[in-house]
């Protein structure tokens, strides 16, 4: 049979919708942001065209927000993964297949309620009449949880668990069970089998889930605002302030550009690390 080659025109037309989407939804906003980031704040707020690096030089003024975001987002992601993994493992390995879908849906259930409602519930649980009151009852007094980094982490784990469990579940579910038998057959205890086979082979799922959660956490401002009470401040909050309170668009644009760069670099190296580790990329090519 002869090879059918598509004309460049047809190929171009087929790719056009994706290209248009990328241009308007990704490239254009980024360009606008980049241009704005070199501008100046108008007298009453907003943007006036200029070419200055002041906004970038001023970035250290939000250093603490960057620091908070860059510690709590990875930590929250890690905690979510650590808690999601056993759940996903239980679902994929221990639960009889006919119950799996039901259980998986239950894991997702919190997502059906409003995010704000969930945070309000946590405000009550972590507030002084909630968990701290229980702790006081068993003798641990004056525990302050609300409006602390701990509260933000708890909210992150709770809020993002439904995003982390399914990808890990999928990777565990399609894990070839014969590999586990092979490992046991070669003398590995169940614990060693878990570390040497199950965990490395489910890393792509962990990586996918972690990326989702990490990216969302990096840009989050609702969670720190509600469970951090304005005290645990993320870059997202800084952006909300810059755009919605102090109306310093150019500086906000510079902070956004910095955030995008940080995210891109982090995600790039993380993915490279994980993919290198599991060799899934090459496996996928074969």
């Amino acid at each position: 049979m002869s090879t059918h080659t598509r004309s460049p025109l047809v190929t171009g037309l087929l790719l056009a919708p994706a290209g248009v989407f990328f241009f308007f939804m990704l490239i254009l906003p980024l360009l606008v942001m980049l241009v704005f980031s070199f501008g100046e704040r108008a007298a009453a707020g907003g943007y006036v065209p200029a070419f200055t690096f002041d906004n970038y030089l001023n970035l250290p003024a939000r250093g603490k927000a960057f620091l908070n975001t860059l510690t709590l987002a990875p930590l929250g992601t890690l905690l979510t993964a650590v808690i999601a993994f056993p759940m996903a493992y239980f679902l994929a390995v221990k639960v009889p297949p006919k119950w799996r879908v039901v259980m998986l849906v239950l894991v997702m259930a919190p997502f059906w309620t409003s995010q704000l409602m969930r945070y309000y519930a946590w405000i009550m649980i972590l507030g002084s009449k909630g968990l701290p009151a229980w702790l006081a009852w068993i003798g641990i007094t004056d525990v302050r949880l609300l409006n602390t980094p701990t509260a933000v982490l708890i909210g992150a784990v709770y809020g993002f668990l439904p995003l982390m469990v399914p990808p890990i579940y999928v990777s565990l579910e399609k894990l070839d069970k014969r590999l586990l038998e092979a490992s046991a057959d070669l003398g590995a205890t169940p614990w060693h089998t878990f570390w040497q086979i199950t965990l490395p082979l489910s890393l792509p799922g962990v990586a996918t889930g972690s990326m989702l959660v990490f990216i969302l956490l990096m840009g989050d401002y609702i969670l720190p605002q509600y469970l951090g009470g304005g005290k645990v401040f993320f870059i997202g909050n800084a952006l909300v302030d810059l755009f919605l309170q102090s109306r310093n668009w150019p500086y906000g644009a510079a902070v956004s550009v910095a955030l995008v760069i940080i995210m891109f670099v982090t995600v790039y190296f993380y993915m490279r690390f994980v993919l290198g580790k599991t060799d899934q990329r090459r496996a996928a090519l074969v």
Partner: peptide
Amino acid sequence: LTNPLRAEIMARFKAA
């Protein structure tokens, strides 16, 4: 309302 310094100080205070 429009003073940039007051706006920035408020933002810095929150970000601190």
